[in-house]
Every structure is written in structure tokens, then in C-alpha cells.
Design a protein around this nucleic acid. Structure first.
Lengths: 223, 223
DNA sequence: CAACCCTTCCGTGCACTGTACGGAAAACCG
DNA sequence: CGGTTTTCCGTACAGTGCACGGAAGGGTTG
């Protein structure tokens, strides 16, 4: 009599076990652990000890979950604070980079979807007003904001793929050598400085960022 | 007698019907038509009137096909030619943008994979030597090249998702209004200039590019 | 108290994915 | 002629997103 009351577990909790928040939190954890390729609704449900279809009470599709997870981690970036525009932006963008490295799946997602979540928009607003305060406006302002976020996205994306390429399989050193030799053969000694040392990324990031900020500085009204 | 010779088609062509080139060509066409999400090995084989598993004689995995297709379209960018560094780069990057708009799946792929194909490396080499001729070297050179390609990738990526968002379903105008109002509500009037007019992208692209190039110009040796 | 509905949960099933495996036939080579 | 290699591909398997419908409990209403 496997259907007897004594073997069933009918008890339904009064409050819902799941929630959009719990789902998004688990999604971020799953993405961190397995990447975009390893992310599936079944795995996400398993992580929450729930049936797969239960998720769909709180979310319309897998795409929804990805959108929400993306905006969630963008929310990890702290609000700008005060200070001269240049230092403010350097701080803000350095933080963005750190968040995107903690969650290395972010660049892959930002490349395909519009950033319309509340946290993304708040961050965007921060950039706009920092540069507006500095004296930019109109199309130049838009161009400056777009350039800055493109730069960060692009930099972290290539930084991440570099790490993935180098550290994917066993002994790292051999693969790294193969790739650098490949690059050397085809691009030549000019690129000798490209991604060859591990810690160089920090310095490279600030170098490129300064370049862009210098470009922006030339557009500011005198004073 | 369905197995009779008269009903069979045993004729094997002397030369192989498939080839890596044909596969890559069809892959690009399929990606153009259906995007990354609609790309599958089965659909690709169907387009070539071949069995799915036949593809695997010429290619190890779907990832391989994507890598090859990506490098293929990067090859559509013409070699730099001659001229002053700045005009040369503007020409080259404008072309890159055009190619990435023709093949709107490119930004999504470049965000996840290392660009190690022959055409990608050739283009990279073009950037390096143009800026080296202009007088850059070392880490600054690397930063400049990285910044430029990040900029183009990022710009076209957001340009493409904008088009996708706006023109996905029926009447465009309604959705466009909803999105712009959403942006307006959250980012405010500062972003009034952001993606609101269709043809503005060309101008915006050159504006941001000039910004980056100005930043690079400040790093050149005097003269 | 009963009758009803609404919310939450989820098992089943379907159409589709990438690709491992093995076979079949033709071409080439001794 | 026999054996090997090249090309092609059917079948099968484990996995995917999600539509559908049902079940169980709490809440609301007669």
C-alpha cells in the first residue's frame, strides 16, 4: 500500500517555498559555477530542490532568468559617490570590471541583450550624470558613455576568454606556450606585449581606460 | 522489392560532395538567416542536402563550425591599404562595423571565443602595424589596439540588440515608444540623445571613434 | 459546514539538440 | 582479386526548454 497516508508527504507549506528572488540568487550561483553553457532550467531547479516546472510559476522563460540574473549582478556595483569626474569614473569602471570577473558569464550576456533592468539603468544614469556634470551634453555625452561601457565590456570579455583558453585543460603552461607562439608567428613581435604576463591585465586596463578618458577630456569645455 | 537496384541510388560521386569550405559558407548563410539561436547542425546539414553526421567528417564539433564561420566573415574586411594612420583606421573600423552589421551574430560570438583564426590575426596585425608606424609601442600600443576593437565590438553589439528589440514583433512603433519611454523614465533627459533616431548610429559611431582616436593621439610622440 | 476557486507545486510528454558508434558503399592500391 | 581508406549517414542516447494538465492545500464565499 504505497499510497497510504503514512507514506505520503502531503504537507504543503503555507508560504511559497520558491520566489523570484530565490530563483535569481540560485541562477547567479549556478552561472558562476557552470557558466552559460552549463546553465539549464533543470539544473537550476535541482539546486533549489524543486521540480523543473515549478520555476515557471515565477518566470516566463529561461531568457527571463538570464535577464534577471544579469541585472542582479550589475546591482553589485556600488553607486558612484562623489569626487572629480575622472576619479569617479575610474573607480566606477574598475568596480564594473571586478564584478564582471567575479561573474565571468556577464560579457557573453551583455553582448546579446538590451540592458533595461533597474540596476543597469541606474548605473547608466550614473555615467550620464557624472559626464554631464563634467560639462558634456547631447550626442557627445551619449558617445562618451557608450564608449566607456563598450571599453569595459570588451576588455573583460577578452580577459575572460584569455583565462578560459589558458586554464581550461591540464598543465596550462603548454597551452599558454602554444597560443603565444601562434600569436607571435602571425601577428609578430609588435604584439609581444599582448596578454603574456598574468598580472598585466590590471595595468593594461587602466592604460586603455586613461586613453579613453583623455579622449573625453578633449571634449570638455575649457576650464 | 524495395531493395532492388532500380530503386536504390548507389552512385557515389568520385569527388567528395562536401568540403570544409562548403560547410563554412552554408554556416554563414544559416547564421545570417536564423541567428546563433537558430543555428543547428541538423539545419546546416539540411541546407547542404546532406545527412547530419556527414558534417562531422570535416569538422569536429559545432564549436568548430562557429569558429570557422567567424573567421570567414572577418576575412570580408579588406586589408588596410595606405594613408595617414587616422584615416586608415577610420576606414578599417568603419568596414569592420559594416561587416558586423551584415552578420549580426558576430558580436555574440566574439564575446566568448578567442580570435585566433588567420583572418582575425591578419586584421589584428593591421591594427598593430598602423599604430606602430604612427609611433606607438609597448603596452601603450597594445592598449590602443585593444581599446579600438573593444569599441567597435561594443558599439555594434548594442546597435544590433537595439534593432532586434525594436523590430522583433509586429508594428515596431509601439515597442519603440515603450522602450524609449522606459529609458526616459529611468535614465532621464540626459539620455534623450541615445538611440532615438534611426540614422543616428552612423554619426554616433564616428563620434565615439573620434573620441578614442583623440585619446590615442595624445600618446603619440610629438611631430 | 460545504462548495468553490486560486495559488503553488510538479510529473509527463513533445519536439528538438549535439554527437558517439557503427555500418555501407565506392575508390584506391597492392 | 582482396584489403584499406574515404565518404556518407541512420540510429540511438542523453540532454534541452517548456506546454499541458492535474493534485493538493488555503482562502473565500454561500
Amino acid at each position: 500500500m504505497p499510497e497510504s497516508i503514512w507514506f505520503r508527504d502531503d504537507a504543503r507549506p503555507r508560504a511559497p517555498r520558491l520566489s523570484r528572488e530565490r530563483i535569481v540568487e540560485a541562477a547567479v550561483a549556478l552561472l558562476d559555477a557552470e557558466g552559460v553553457a552549463g546553465f539549464s532550467m533543470r539544473a537550476l531547479a535541482a539546486r533549489l530542490r524543486a521540480g523543473t516546472m515549478s520555476l515557471y510559476e515565477y518566470v516566463k522563460s529561461k531568457e527571463d532568468v538570464l535577464d534577471l540574473a544579469l541585472d542582479e549582478v550589475i546591482g553589485e556595483i556600488e553607486p558612484p559617490g562623489a569626487g572629480p569626474w575622472r576619479e569617479l569614473l575610474v573607480r566606477q569602471l574598475t568596480q564594473s570590471r571586478q564584478v564582471m570577473r567575479r561573474h565571468s558569464w556577464v560579457p557573453a550576456l551583455t553582448a546579446t541583450r538590451p540592458l533595461l533592468g533597474p540596476n543597469a539603468l541606474a548605473r547608466s544614469r550614473g555615467f550620464y550624470s557624472a559626464l554631464a556634470d563634467a560639462g558634456l551634453s547631447g550626442a557627445t555625452l551619449t558617445a562618451a558613455v557608450g564608449t566607456l561601457s563598450s571599453y569595459v565590456n570588451g576588455f573583460v570579455a577578452s580577459e575572460n576568454t584569455w583565462w578560459d583558453t589558458v586554464r581550461t585543460p591540464e598543465a596550462d603552461a603548454e597551452i599558454r606556450g602554444k597560443v603565444t607562439r601562434h600569436l607571435d608567428d602571425h601577428v609578430g613581435e609588435l604584439a609581444r606585449h599582448a596578454q603574456v604576463d598574468d598580472g598585466d591585465f590590471d595595468a593594461q586596463f587602466l592604460l586603455g581606460l586613461d586613453l579613453v578618458l583623455d579622449g573625453i577630456a578633449t571634449r570638455l569645455p575649457p576650464g
